[in-house]
């Protein structure tokens, strides 16, 4: 059993393709969770992902947690009158029958106090807490430092 667990964990670390697959939690589906390689650990990392709510009730992503960050937070990049700021987001609304993306230039998970260097090709787990649906842990694939998407193939997109 322990060996199976270890193998599962190892596969999480070595297989970025997993992040392209959808993870299900009730009527919530999370997919294309990705991050960028970090330069050392002194600057914050980022998490982007796509959430689909196939249910009939509104939900919201209220927090994120991951062992690779001492202070993970939800933020939103807002460009108002040509000025970009990055306020802390209390939650990310996930309305019924809608798809919401945490993506460059919008909502994103900001991972402060990285506990390890994020290397391209590896992955790390992030636990998402939804107000109604509860918790789900998804693998986040680390893309290159200049990546602009999850790097999933079109069929998965």
């Amino acid at each position: 059993m322990n060996r199976l667990l270890a193998a599962t964990l190892l596969s999480l670390v070595s297989s970025p393709v997993l992040a392209c697959d959808a993870v299900q939690l009730g009527t919530i589906e999370v997919e294309q969770a990705w991050s960028r390689a970090s330069i050392g650990t002194s600057r914050p990392g980022v998490v982007y992902l796509t959430i689909r709510n196939a249910g009939t009730e509104d939900d919201a992503l209220v927090s994120i947690d991951t062992p690779i960050s001492g202070m993970p937070m939800l933020h939103e990049t807002v460009v108002t009158d040509g000025i970009a700021s990055m306020p802390h987001a209390m939650e990310v609304p996930v309305p019924a029958d809608a798809t919401v993306a945490l993506e460059p230039g919008g909502y994103h998970g900001m991972l402060m106090d990285l506990t390890q260097v994020l290397k391209e090709g590896e992955s790390f787990p992030v636990t998402l807490t939804f107000r109604n649906a509860g918790e789900v842990t998804v693998p986040v694939s680390v893309q290159g430092v200049g990546a602009t998407d999850a790097g999933c193939s079109e069929n998965n997109g």
Binding site: R36, H75, M86, P104, L111, G146
Partner: peptide, 17 residues
């Protein structure tokens, strides 16, 4: 600024491209 997780890497990667 280099501590910026979203806008700056996105734009600089565009510049690299």
């Amino acid at each position: 600024f280099t501590n910026c997780p979203d806008v700056c890497p996105t734009t600089l990667s565009e510049v690299g491209q």
